[in-house]
């Protein structure tokens, strides 16, 4: 059998794939955080809970209404995005003028409530979500066996990330968004409805989290705890990448996922810690983050 650094190629590539999958979710979630933070100046602690909400809505649609994966891929982001819009209108919009730390605290409370509700009704055990028939099975690539669904997750997350990046960098709506990030008063003065832009941005961020959730449902178990475990790692990713750039958030997400996968191959005990260690090193060498522009 072929070996790389004394590790069988199969195992090596297998862990890299796991890392790439994790990285896909880090990228999608840190992207959403960066989009929200860019305009609202709020760190959305509820992002993990919205991701969990997405997975759960998908699961409940399947179990109770028999609505499968593909319709859910559209319905779930809409539902979670709508939920985000309601939250923004009712609560977050009141917090823009005060210290951004309160936004963090509010969304932290929101995350606790969402998670608490699902824990109350569904317990902490995971619920399996079957891989859709179209993507069941796997493909032999010659050098490794690739489960089709995992390949799809990588492709889908790339599409989502690139799509969002294009939306923000290349469209007119995106240019309003970027302008409002720089100077909301001026943009408002030009007749752009900035409050609506803020609402839609939070809705978009929430929808991205929900989409990541439904994509994750067949990979991980659908459990009320799936979001809170993830969100703290994503925070570390965001610290490493800096939230100044959308592309930075995406690239950092994939990179750290791969780094985690590599660590699993060589030193499994540290695989939980590696992202945080990298964060500490980056803070020592480049306090503003790899792509950061902020002071």
């Amino acid at each position: 059998m072929t070996m790389i650094f004394g590790i069988p190629v199969q195992a090596f590539l297998g862990q890299l794939l796991v890392g790439l999958i994790n990285g896909s979710f880090y990228a999608m979630l840190s992207l959403g955080l960066a989009v929200i933070f860019g305009l609202l100046r709020i760190i959305n602690f509820a992002h993990g809970a919205l991701y969990m909400l997405g997975a759960f809505i998908g699961y409940l649609l399947l179990v109770h209404l028999g609505i499968g994966y593909w319709p859910a891929l559209v319905l779930v982001p809409l539902a979670v995005g709508l939920f985000g819009i309601v939250v923004e209108r009712l609560a977050l919009s009141r917090l823009y003028r005060i210290d951004p730390l309160y936004g963090l605290l509010f969304t932290f409370g929101l995350a606790l409530v969402i998670e608490g509700v699902f824990r109350f009704y569904y317990g902490v055990s995971g619920n399996p979500y079957a891989v859709p028939p179209l993507l069941a099975g796997g493909t032999n690539l010659g050098f490794m066996f690739l489960p089709n669904y995992r390949g799809w997750v990588v492709v889908a997350s790339l599409i989502v990330c690139i799509g969002t990046w294009l939306l923000i960098e290349k469209t007119r709506l995106g240019s309003y968004l970027r302008a409002a990030t720089e100077n909301p008063e001026l943009v408002q003065a030009f007749g752009v409805n900035v409050p609506l832009l803020l609402t839609l941005t939070y809705g978009l961020g929430a929808a991205l989290a929900g989409l990541a959730g439904i994509l994750a449902a067949p990979v991980y178990q659908v459990s009320p705890l799936m979001g809170s475990d993830l969100i703290i790692v994503v925070f570390a990713v965001v610290v490493v990448g800096g939230m100044g750039s959308i592309l930075g958030a995406i690239v950092t997400g994939y990179m750290l996922g791969l780094a985690e996968g590599l660590t699993k191959v060589f030193y499994p005990e540290a695989s939980n810690l590696v992202v945080f260690v990298i964060m500490a090193i980056v803070l020592l060498l480049r306090p503003a983050g790899l792509f950061g522009r902020d002071a």
Binding site: A91, F108, G109, V113, F120
Partner: peptide
């Protein structure tokens, strides 16, 4: 009654109207 829900609600209320 789950503690996390109560804690979360108090958090949200404090931040919104009782800072």
């Amino acid at each position: 009654f789950p503690v996390t829900i109560a804690t979360g609600l108090i958090f949200m209320i404090c931040v919104l109207i009782f800072r």
